[in-house]
Design a protein around this nucleic acid. Structure first.
Lengths: 338, 338
DNA sequence: CTGTTAGCGCGTTCAT
DNA sequence: ATGAACGCGCTAACAG
């Protein structure tokens, strides 16, 4: 493998001069620069970033740790991260935790060993251990999508509470009084915040706690299916469902279809997260949509700033707005029809 | 930052012994192993893989270079890669080329500098330059999803020709004679192979070349939309469309809807690539589906084998089968109805 | 089973 | 504007 020394010899300069040309650092005379560049081309020299990173303590690598890249919400987020990082000359390592804290720990350990410059973390749980470990280690982190209570950190997330509040208000406005919430794990902030928004809307509408129905599961389709079945078995049976993410929404729809119920005629169904237009043949669901690409973008920018200037500014929390898109699945006013 | 020397001093052993404990290489007495592990824990030592990779010439990192992770086909493929790599102790760097050869070149250059152990490449074009460059450099590569003509390499892909053949046969069997193909770029093998399968089916049915209609675009929704409009303007107007991927299919559907045409009554529509069940409210499209997760899995296994044992076996080409799933969008027999 | 020596390829630091 | 010397942290190679 050819090294900086081979290039230096061929160009008749010192190795450090080659280094300076490659990294565009310091001033080099046009003459020597050209000789170096010629030698690089001739030898097909490929700089070894392992060695340079070891010496300079910068890897120009970020990591994105998330639950499941298979979910379009996270795919878009990942794309936002990658585009932004790439523009700044960084590459990105992706890690899927599948919402497992053990996987998360394992990956974070590996990433620290690889000395990534910074980490974008969608925490598997509200447990602060992982984040504390990273902060203790000194690796810059930005938390994405979710909060971790009682810990100071840079965070970029959406307003889950407000999104759920709006969705629930919409259903209330359509005359529904029996509204059930199908959500993810209790100790994931998005899950908890969406429940909170749901409860606030019902409380404001004067519906007491015993008229509030919350089902906890996880963020996958199978769970949505099961929770919807539970909701159908409840007495009194709800007339509307709020699903805490896209996969839960689809799972719930399947359960309703199997039960022979029409949406929205027999049961209204709304949910969090929209699907990209390029994936949907028949847009149907009323949703609270989150700007996932922008979230990845903003998080990466924040992280890159931190790298430039560690501890230059206090921790920041960026909260992006959710937007409700009304389609068919929420139905039209029931009171007036009946 | 604490190093292997700090650990060695604290444990009263030589640095190399620490190295052996950490990497589980060679035999170490239980006594020393425990002392080392205690020292590691006490100091919170995190091995520097930059240094170890520099020395050992292995980074335990793979790269996946693909066109767009936002497409569920590639997302699943990526997940197959990540799961397999992770199980083997490798991390994965993802790169989106957006089908641009320039982006591809740029990324490959960076990856070589980072000394990734191997590369999984979905080539942007059939152009062999990138692959040749990697092979010349000596970095193991596995080509995924697409062929690169006239170059020897490990390849894992699906049988695009056969999938398109089957889809077209299905339409022929339903009585269609005016069948148009909406495909991607001419110089991407999946695009070309699907055209070939389409033509073979039509040829076998005795439909001459002038009765074959092929529209070339790219693999995105907007392109599908435009190609469908062109197909609608053709004389005679086709009665069925074959789309070369999922995004083209959706784009085509939108164009048909805008033109006031019903699918499948006024126009049959079939395509390549299914969407994951968790994303689809109403399964509608008749498709040729590819096992994308398995493709990522198989490709990664092949690559890992190569790393273990460079040049131990000849290049391999694994061709996975496509499967046709019949749903509504292809319609039922027209001849019998009319 | 354990240790010694040396060097992977580069950039920091200091000098001129 | 350019260079010399050194070390980043680790493991290959060899010795015992």
């Amino acid at each position: 493998m050819t090294t900086i020394y081979d290039v230096a010899r061929k160009a008749g300069v010192a190795p450090i001069t080659v280094s300076r040309v490659i990294n565009q650092t310091g001033y080099i005379s046009a003459d020597k620069r050209q000789r170096v560049e010629a030698a690089v081309a001739e030898l097909g020299y490929v700089p070894n970033r392992l060695a340079s990173s070891l010496r300079s303590r910068r890897t120009h690598t970020l990591a994105l740790v998330l639950s499941d890249i298979t979910n379009p919400f996270f795919t878009n987020l990942a794309r936002g991260v990658e585009d932004t990082a790439s523009d700044a000359g960084f590459t990105v390592i992706f890690c899927n935790t599948d919402e497992s804290e053990a996987e998360e720990q394992k990956y974070l350990g590996v990433l620290l060993q690889k000395r990534v410059d910074g980490i974008l973390l969608v925490p598997a749980r509200s447990n602060p251990d992982s984040l504390r470990m990273l902060q203790h280690n000194g690796t810059p982190v930005v938390v994405l999508d979710r909060r971790i209570p009682h810990v100071q950190a840079d965070v970029v997330r959406c307003d889950s509470e407000d999104g759920a509040y709006q969705l629930t208000r919409l259903l209330l406005g359509l005359g529904h009084r029996g509204i059930a919430m199908l959500t993810g794990p209790k100790n994931v902030s998005t899950s908890a915040d969406r429940v909170a928004g749901y409860r606030r809307a019902l409380n404001e509408a004067g519906l007491a706690k015993r008229q509030q129905m919350v089902f906890y599961g996880d963020f996958r389709q199978a769970s949505g299916y099961q929770m919807a079945q539970q909701a159908l078995a409840a007495q009194p049976r709800p007339t509307a469902l709020v699903a805490a993410n896209n996969f839960i929404t689809i799972g719930a729809l399947k359960a309703l279809q199997e039960a022979g119920l029409r949406v929205p005629e027999d049961m209204a169904l709304v949910g969090f997260d929209d699907l990209p237009p390029a994936m949907v043949a028949f847009p149907f669901f009323t949703v609270a949509t989150q700007p996932s690409y922008e979230m990845g973008q903003a998080g990466t920018r924040l992280l890159l700033e931190r790298l430039e200037n560690p501890a230059a500014r206090p921790f920041q929390e960026i909260i992006l707005p959710t937007e409700v898109i009304v389609r068919q699945s929420s139905g039209v006013a029931k009171l007036h029809l009946s």
